Amino acid sequence: PREAYIVTIEKGKPGQTVTWYQLRADHPKPDSLISEHPTAQEAMDAKKRYED
Rank of each mutant, 00 (worst) to 15 (best):
D45R: 11
T39L: 04
Q41C: 08
Q16F: 14
Q16S: 12
I6E: 00
E42Y: 03
D31F: 15
Y50H: 06
D52P: 05
K29R: 12
T17M: 13
K47R: 07
P28N: 07
Y50N: 02
I6Q: 00
A46T: 02
D31T: 05
R49D: 08
A4E: 01
M44F: 13
D26F: 08
A43K: 00
I6C: 02
M44H: 10
Y50E: 02
R49Y: 10
I9L: 07
A40P: 09
H37C: 02
Q41R: 11
V7T: 09
W20S: 04
E51L: 10
G12Y: 05
A40I: 15
P30C: 09
P38L: 13
W20C: 06
R49W: 11
D45Q: 13
L33I: 13
P28Y: 07
P14T: 09
Y50W: 15
M44Q: 12
K13V: 14
S32D: 04
I34K: 04
R24V: 07
A25Q: 05
D31V: 05
S35W: 01
D52H: 13
K13C: 11
Y21R: 00
T19Q: 07
D45N: 11
A46W: 03
A4Y: 14
T17D: 04
A46P: 00
A43N: 00
A4T: 08
K29I: 13
V18M: 11
P38S: 11
V18H: 10
D52L: 14
D45C: 10
M44V: 10
G12L: 04
K47T: 01
K13Q: 14
K29T: 13
T39D: 06
V7Y: 06
Y21Q: 00
E42C: 06
P28G: 07
Q16L: 10
P38D: 06
I9M: 07
P1Q: 13
Q22F: 02
A4C: 14
E3V: 15
G15R: 04
E36R: 02
K11H: 07
R2N: 09
E42Q: 09
P14F: 10
K48E: 09
Q41H: 09
A43Y: 00
G15L: 06
I6N: 00
P1G: 14
A25P: 00
D31K: 10
R2S: 08
K48F: 09
W20G: 02
D26M: 13
K48L: 12
R24N: 02
K29V: 14
P30Q: 09
R49G: 06
D52S: 15
E10V: 13
T19H: 06
H37W: 14
R49T: 09
A46N: 03
I9C: 08
A4V: 12
L33H: 03
P38M: 12
Y21L: 01
A46H: 04
H37G: 00
I6L: 05
K11G: 04
E36K: 02
K13I: 14
P30N: 08
D45M: 12
A46D: 02
G12F: 05
E51K: 07
I6A: 00
K13F: 12
D45H: 10
V7K: 08
P1L: 14
T17E: 12
H27A: 07
Q16K: 12
S35V: 01
Q22V: 04
T39I: 03
Y21C: 01
P38R: 14
Y50D: 02
G12V: 06
K13N: 12
A43W: 00
P30H: 09
P30M: 09
L23D: 01
E36A: 03
E10N: 10
P28A: 07
R24W: 15
S35A: 02
D26T: 11
L33D: 01
I34P: 00
H37V: 01
Y5Q: 04
R49P: 01
P28R: 08
D52V: 12
K47G: 02
L33N: 02
E36M: 05
K47I: 04
Q16N: 13
K48C: 07
K13M: 14
W20N: 02
P30K: 13
A4D: 00
Q22W: 02
S32K: 11
G12M: 05
Q22S: 04
A4N: 02
D26N: 15
G12S: 05
Y50P: 01
H37Q: 01
T39A: 03
T17P: 07
I34N: 01
D52R: 13
E10T: 13
W20Q: 03
D52C: 11
P30T: 08
K47D: 00
R2Y: 13
K29D: 10
A25E: 03
M44P: 00
T19V: 12
Q22M: 03
K11D: 03
I6G: 00
E51D: 13
E3K: 15
P38Y: 08
P28I: 08
V7E: 03
A46F: 04
P30G: 09
E10W: 07
P28H: 11
H27C: 11
A4M: 08
Q41D: 09
R49H: 10
E3T: 15
P30I: 10
K13R: 12
S35N: 02
S35F: 01
P38A: 14
Y21K: 00
T39C: 04
Q16H: 12
D45I: 14
T39R: 04
S32V: 11
P14A: 11
K47E: 02
P30V: 11
D31C: 15
P28Q: 07
D45E: 14
I9A: 05
I6K: 00
K11R: 13
W20E: 02
T8V: 13
V7S: 05
L23C: 02
D52T: 15
R2H: 12
K29G: 09
Q41W: 11
V18K: 13
D52Y: 13
K11S: 05
D45F: 10
Q41N: 08
I6F: 03
E36G: 02
M44W: 14
S32Y: 12
D31H: 13
Y5V: 05
G12P: 03
T19D: 03
H27M: 10
L23G: 00
L33P: 03
Y50I: 05
G12H: 06
M44D: 07
R49C: 08
H37K: 01
R2C: 12
S32Q: 09
Q41K: 13
I6W: 02
K11M: 07
D31E: 09
D45Y: 10
A43T: 02
I9T: 07
R24D: 01
I34C: 03
T17G: 09
S32T: 15
Q22P: 01
Q16T: 09
A4Q: 02
D26V: 09
R24T: 03
R49S: 09
A4P: 09
M44A: 12
S32R: 15
I9Y: 08
E51I: 10
K13P: 15
A25K: 08
H27P: 03
K11F: 07
P38V: 09
I34M: 04
K47V: 03
H37S: 02
E3N: 15
W20Y: 09
G15H: 06
V7A: 06
A46L: 02
V18E: 14
D26H: 14
P1N: 14
T17H: 08
D52N: 14
V18G: 05
A43F: 00
E36W: 06
H27E: 12
R49V: 12
R49N: 10
Y50S: 02
Y50C: 03
S35Y: 01
K47L: 13
A40H: 15
K11W: 06
I34S: 00
E42F: 04
T39P: 00
L33W: 05
E10Y: 10
A40R: 15
E51T: 08
P30S: 07
Y5E: 02
G15A: 05
